[in-house]
Amino acid sequence: MKKIYPKLPLIFTVIIFGFLLYFLTQDKNPSNPPSALLNKQMPKFESNDLIDENYQISGEKFYGKKIIINFFASWCSPCKVEHPLLIEIANNHSDVLMIGVNHKDKKDDAMNFLESGNPYDQIALDKDGKIAMEFGVYGLPETFIINEKGIIVFAYVGPITNKIYEKKIKRLLSN
């Protein structure tokens, strides 16, 4: 037992370097941190629908369904880039509910934006940015996948690409 004491500092050093090396080799981008809400319950939200403003959208209504929540705005250029792919995803996964959250936008501009195609089943209005804040959104577009239990299983900042769809989203939506 006494023999191990002189080796303790070395053991501590190796353990700490091991930890540091583990975190360094993780596939993490410090300027694009993972969502704090990943693997947590979807935040509650209520809003009016963009198209039918009398229709009330409530996050709780979606429990029991697999959903995609996509934050977008007509003034956001990367949103335009991912839009055709979102339409394709909506067509490929008709069993999945796609909810758009129109963030700090003008109704007419948003409607014009959707003229090229509307992948969303419902579109929540987020005029004051409160829904975005509840979801920890800091840059548009942002996409979340929520499972049947209401748990956020995927969060992505930036436009969805074919590579991301094939590598991560497709599997989550097909399960």
Partner: peptide
């Protein structure tokens, strides 16, 4: 905690190794 304490642990460990 690891982030805050690791520099101190590393310094103390290094000193102990040198003294040893």
């Amino acid at each position: 905690l690891i982030l805050w304490l690791s520099p101190f642990v590393l310094i103390i460990s290094a000193l102990l190794i040198i003294i040893g």
